[in-house]
Design a protein around this nucleic acid. Sequence first.
DNA 1: ACATTGACCTACA
DNA 2: TTGTAGGCCAATG
Length: 117
Amino acid sequence: MAQQKGFYDQVYDVVARIPSGRVATFGQIAQLIGRPKMARFVGYASNNQKSWHLPWHRVVFKDGTLVGEPFFDQQYKALKEEGIKFTKDKRVIMEQFQWHPESENIPDDIRDWPLVF
DNA sequence: ACATTGACCTACA
DNA sequence: TTGTAGGCCAATG
């Protein structure tokens, strides 16, 4: 049999492919792997030192809320530098910036769309 | 070898 | 509308 990858390793494969300037949610990643009920474990996977080279700052809650302390400030700064825009309460505007891997041809000018609050 | 523990999301009362 | 239970991975001590 071909190598059986563990759940965490599949998570890492997906996270590694999130493009700069886009975000994915924990639940979305779980779904992409085919385990829709395991959003929680996606979060757990990010704790492993083994995965700290991955762009975890591009992973947010479903409503665009950034992860809690102690990561919030760094994540906010990193996403802002990638051109992502936020609502007044510092949530990512998911309608514009969520990554949709099944349709890679999202217009590049997406970040110039008018802000919707 | 076992217990602990850690960046989530959905359904349902 | 708010609160709570269930899902069941893998590194660490």
